[in-house]
């Protein structure tokens, strides 16, 4: 098939994923961003004038003259609520996406089209790994712009030296690509988890999340009960340890990406995702 047609078709599949799951991709981070802004706004409005001035001066002094690259990790930590929501949305999305296709019988339509099961499943993986973090980072960036403009206007109204807030803005902007890469590498690290959810999303007749959790619990129990070993629990503990994929600066990126642990995770995730692709041929 024509490669140009293939790429256009894949882009159309990605667009479909975004349009069908706008709540998880766009509205979830937007609502969280708004909520964080409103809470911060109310907290600062609640301060008396002297504390507000001291707060603004403190911020300007803290960031003033410092290297924005060195200060950007501060902002990466502040985006952890967004990354947590992204993780929750990804879990819901992966659990329901293939299951929903079968429940609504739209799988019959898609299988009548020249779209392979492999492409459909890959579009879901790429959508949540590569596309979803873009929307989350866009909301984070918008939040930074609004918050820092608000701080600068407040600073000017109190006649405070606001040059340090400019450095703060640069640090915040530099942290956004790090947050994106953190989300991306986390998704790659958790690829076995994604594959597991996709497998049960393609398999289960109902409640795919329950099937995914129940099956895992059963396998863990059987391993311990029958063989008295803990290879599987060791594997899951290593995979779910956030310290193994936490990135707060560019320096940690390559060590995480090009490691044996990442490679074996991709192999295991690939195996489970392949299972999900083949499972698509069974329609209730």
């Amino acid at each position: 098939m024509n490669p140009k047609f293939e790429s256009i078709q894949f882009l159309a599949l990605l667009r479909r994923e975004v349009l069908e799951h706008r709540n998880l991709f766009i509205w979830a981070p937007a609502v969280l961003g708004l909520l964080i802004f409103v809470i911060d706004f109310l907290i600062v409005q609640g301060l008396d004038e002297r504390t507000k001035i001291a707060f603004l001066e403190g911020l300007a002094r803290f960031f003033g003259g410092g290297s924005p690259a060195n200060m950007s990790p501060v902002f990466v930590f502040s985006t952890l609520p967004f990354l947590f929501i992204l993780f929750m949305c990804a879990t819901l999305y992966l659990t329901n996406s293939l299951y929903q296709d079968r429940r609504e019988l739209s799988i019959l339509f898609w299988q009548s089209m020249p779209v392979s099961n492999l492409k459909t499943v890959l579009s879901k993986v790429v959508a949540i790994t590569v596309i979803a973090p873009v929307f989350y980072c866009a909301v984070i960036f918008a939040l930074y712009v609004i918050a820092i403009l608000w701080l600068i206007v407040s600073g000017l109204s109190y006649d405070i030296e606001v040059a340090g807030l400019g450095y703060m803005f640069l640090s915040a902007v530099l942290s956004v690509p790090v947050v994106y890469l953190f989300a991306l590498t986390s998704a790659l690290w958790l690829f076995p988890y994604m594959g597991w959810l996709l497998l049960f999303s393609a398999f289960a007749g109902r409640t795919p999340l329950l099937w995914a959790i129940g099956s895992l619990a059963l396998i863990l129990f059987l391993e311990g009960f029958l063989f008295d070993t803990q290879f599987l629990s060791n594997w899951i503990e290593t995979r779910s340890d956030i310290d193994n994929f936490l990135i707060v600066e560019y320096g940690g990126l390559f060590a995480r990406l090009f490691s044996y642990e990442m490679f074996i995770g991709l192999v295991v995730g690939g195996l489970l995702t392949t299972g999900a692709v083949f499972m698509r041929r069974f329609i209730d």
């Binding site: 099956s215 599987l232 060791n234 594997w235 290593t238 193994n244 295991v268 195996l271």
Partner: peptide, 24 residues
């Protein structure tokens, strides 16, 4: 499903035995 889970378990067990994976 049984085949995929079996392949998954075998891969994890063999890899865990070779690398002596410990939780950290």
């Amino acid at each position: 499903l049984l085949t995929v889970i079996l392949a998954y378990v075998i891969l994890i067990v063999v890899e865990g035995a070779i690398t002596d994976r410990q939780p950290d």
